[in-house]
Design a protein around this nucleic acid. Structure first.
Lengths: 214, 214
DNA sequence: GTCTATACGGCGATAGAC
DNA sequence: GTCTATCGCCGTATAGAC
C-alpha cells in the first residue's frame, strides 16, 4: 500500500464552512443533493478542495452527523437541566423541534442506504436515547406510565418516534391524522406534567445555544 | 416536436420480470442499488431493453410502487373481510408483515428524495389509510379507544407507524426498546379483541394470495 | 412491438502538479 | 492548501435492426 492520502485539518475554517453548506444542501434537497460539485459551487471553492477535506462522501456525511449530534446533545442536556421536573415535556418539545428533527430524520434515512454510516448514526441515536431514558426514569421511577401501560423506554420510543414519522410522511405530501396525533400527545404530555404549572404554558425560551464545536 | 418515444407494452412478460428484479434489488441494496445496468444484469438482458420499458428511472419506480401497492391493497382487503370483527388485529398484523413493510418503508424513503414520485406514494398510502380507517370506525364507532384517548385515525397512525419506525431503525442497527414496544402494542391489540377468542391465538393462516396484477 | 449499439455529460474517486 | 487531469460508472437520448 502506498503513502496515506493527504487530508485537511479538522480545525480548518474552510472545513467548517463546508459542513455548514452540507447542512443547507441536505435541508434543501436531501442527502442525494449533496455532491462534491454542488457543494463546491455552494461554498465557492473547487470540488478538488472539498475532496481534500473529505476524501469520500461517506466521511463527509459522518463529519456532518458528528458535528450536528454534538450540538443536539448539548441542547438536550441544557433543556433537561433547566426543567428537571418535567422530562416528558422537554423530550416532546425536543423531538418536535425543527432543528433536531429535520436533519436527524434525513440522517436516519441516509444510514439505511449507506453501509459505512450506519454505525455512526446508530451510535449517536442510542447515546441520545440513553440520556433521555435516564431523565425519564429519574422522574417516573420504574412504574408504568399512562398511554397503554408503556414502560419508560417504550414510551420514549413512541414519543420521539412520532415526530420523525410525521416528518417522513410530510416529505411526500401526506398530512392525514398528523395534527390529531400531535394534539393527542400534546394533551398527554400536558396532563403528565407536574401540577405546579398546569395552566397554559408560556412560550418556551430559546434553549438553543448557538455554540459550535470548533 | 418529433415522433413520440416508443415504450414497451404493459402486458409484456419481460416487463413483469424486470419489476420482480426491481423488488429484489431494492430489498437487497435499497433503492440506490437500482440502476439500469445492475437491473439489466440481474434480469439477464441489456440495459437498453430496460429503458425500452421504463424510459426513466422514475417511471420504473412508479411502476414498481403501483404493482406492489395493488397487491397489498388486495391482501389487506381480504384479511379485513376474513376477520371483520377484529380490525385492530388485522391492521396490526398487516403493518408488521415483512411483505408489506420492507418495500413500503423503502418507497417512503424514496419519495422523500425523488420529487416526481411523491404524489404516487402519497396517493397509495392515503388510499390504504382510508380503507383501514373505515374498518376501524365501523367496529369502534366514534368513541375514543384506550391508548391515551386516541381517536381512530390517530390510533391508526401510531399502530401502523410503529412497525415502520422500527424497521427504519433496524436498518441502521438500532434495536433498543423495539421488542418492548412491540409486545406492549401486541398486548393492547390482544386486549381490544372481542372476547370470543380471548385465549391464545392460533397461528394466522397465510392470507396472502399470490395473485399478480398482470 | 422488441431489442441492440452507441454516445453524452455528470458523478465519485484517484494521482499528482503548483 | 489548493487545484487539474483523468478514470470508470451512472442516467438518459437516439438511431436503427429484427
Amino acid at each position: 500500500m502506498a503513502t496515506a492520502r493527504r487530508v485537511g485539518a479538522e480545525t480548518s475554517k474552510t472545513r467548517d464552512l463546508l459542513l455548514d453548506c452540507v447542512e443547507k444542501l441536505m435541508s434543501e434537497q436531501g442527502y442525494a443533493g449533496v455532491t462534491y460539485r454542488a457543494l463546491a459551487a455552494k461554498a465557492g471553492v473547487t470540488s478538488g478542495l472539498v475532496q481534500y477535506y473529505f476524501p469520500t462522501l461517506d466521511e463527509l456525511f459522518v463529519a456532518a452527523i458528528r458535528r450536528r449530534s454534538a450540538q443536539n446533545l448539548e441542547r438536550l442536556t441544557g433543556a433537561l437541566k433547566a426543567s428537571p421536573d418535567e422530562p416528558l415535556r422537554v423530550l416532546w418539545d425536543y423531538s418536535r423541534a425543527e432543528s433536531t428533527s429535520a436533519l436527524t430524520t434525513e440522517f436516519l434515512a441516509l444510514g439505511n442506504h449507506r453501509k459505512s454510516i450506519r454505525s455512526e448514526i446508530a451510535e449517536v441515536t442510542e447515546q441520545v436515547r440513553r440520556l433521555q431514558l435516564r431523565a425519564l426514569e429519574a422522574t417516573f421511577a420504574k412504574k408504568k406510565m399512562a398511554i397503554g401501560d408503556l414502560s419508560p423506554s417504550a414510551l420514549l420510543f413512541v414519543l420521539t418516534g412520532i415526530p420523525k414519522l410525521i416528518r417522513l410522511e410530510k416529505g411526500v405530501g401526506i398530512s392525514a391524522a398528523h395534527t390529531e396525533v400531535l394534539t393527542a400527545f400534546e394533551h398527554y404530555v400536558q396532563s403528565a406534567t407536574p401540577s405546579a404549572r398546569r395552566t397554559a404554558r408560556p412560550k418556551r425560551a430559546a434553549t438553543q445555544s448557538k455554540k459550535r464545536t470548533t
